[in-house]
Each structure stands twice: as C-alpha cells, then as structure tokens.
C-alpha cells in the first residue's frame, strides 16, 4: 500500500507515492536523492538527520514522510537561497567548525534552530542547544565558536 504525499523541499514541490512507514529522512535521501542530510544512528540520538520543517528543526529520522505531507522542508542543500552560503555555513567554514563533515549538515541546521529561538545565545546556551547533535571529530569547540561567530556577523 502506498499513500500520495506532496512535500516541498528547498522551494520545490515533490509529489510521490510512499509506503506509510517510510521515514522522512529516507524519503529525502533515497526517494529524492538529496543526500546532504545524513543518517548517523537508529535511536534518534545523533542529529545528523536534522532538517527544517516549516522553519523549525526536526530530526527527520523521527518523522514519517506521510507526516510531512503538505509541509515545507529545508535541507542543507537549500539553506542558502541564492546559491551562495548562509551565514552559518560561512561561519562553520571560517571557524573550522567541521572536520569529516558528516555531522555538519545536521549541526548547521541545529545551530539555525538555536538562533531562531534565541538570537543572542551565550556559549552555555549554544552548548545546551547542541546537546542533541553528536560530533566525534571537533570536540564541539569550533562548532560553538562558529555559532557564536554567526551571531556576531548578524549583529555587526
């Protein structure tokens, strides 16, 4: 059995028939081939799959594709609207906020959520806001700096 869904991703509408059990992350990665969104676990811990759903960050492995029917989703590929870089992407680059890059799409979107809900977070608030995202390479230090840097860019 399949169910029709219509989901807008990065400003483009996709109409597809999906199995009811299909996870949103697999819809994005496998059905549509948008592989910037990653899968790092099977217990909703790592945050590698984070996307924006109607503007708010969600772990796309915790959500079924059918639940996203009618939603607007932003993945890492669509974060910068003009084909350039979003300020958070810039700051992750400038502050060496990534090494292997596997956690990075999820991290950047989690950071987006932090700034959406708190435009001027303290370091502690940034660290707290990242607790649902694992990075094994950076020790988080430059990720925190990158988020802080993005705040300063915005306010300067």
């Amino acid at each position: 059995m399949t169910i029709p869904v219509s989901i807008a991703i990065n400003g483009r509408r996709y109409d597809r028939e999906v199995e009811p059990r299909l996870l949103l992350v697999h819809f994005i990665r496998d059905t549509l081939g948008l592989t910037g969104t990653k899968v790092g676990c099977d217990t909703s811990q790592c945050g590698a799959c984070t996307v924006l759903l109607d503007g708010a960050a969600v772990k796309s492995c915790t959500c079924l594709a059918v639940q996203a029917d009618g939603a607007e989703i932003t993945t890492i590929e669509g974060l910068a609207d003009d084909g350039g870089l979003h300020p958070l992407q810039e700051s992750f680059w400038n502050k060496h906020g990534l090494q292997c890059g596997f956690c990075t799409p999820g991290m950047i979107l989690a950071a987006h959520e932090i700034l959406r809900t708190n435009p001027d977070p303290s370091d502690e608030e940034i660290r707290h806001g990242l607790e649902g995202n694992f990075c094994r390479c950076t020790g988080y230090q430059n990720i925190v700096r990158a988020v802080r840097d993005a705040v300063q860019e915005e306010t300067s």
Binding site: G36, T75, L85, Q89, F92, W93, N94, G101, T104
Partner: peptide, 21 residues
C-alpha cells in the same frame, strides 16, 4: 587558512559511500 575541503561539506554536496546510487 580555512580549509579547501569545506565548501562541499557545508553545502551537502559531498558524497559519502552511502550517498551513492
């Protein structure tokens, strides 16, 4: 200097093994 590998990684353009079809 900032890293040459980063632009593809921060935009989701990099291809890891499981990204291959």
């Amino acid at each position: 200097i900032r890293r040459r590998e980063d632009p593809r990684l921060i935009t989701g353009a990099a291809s890891y093994t499981d990204d291959l079809t």
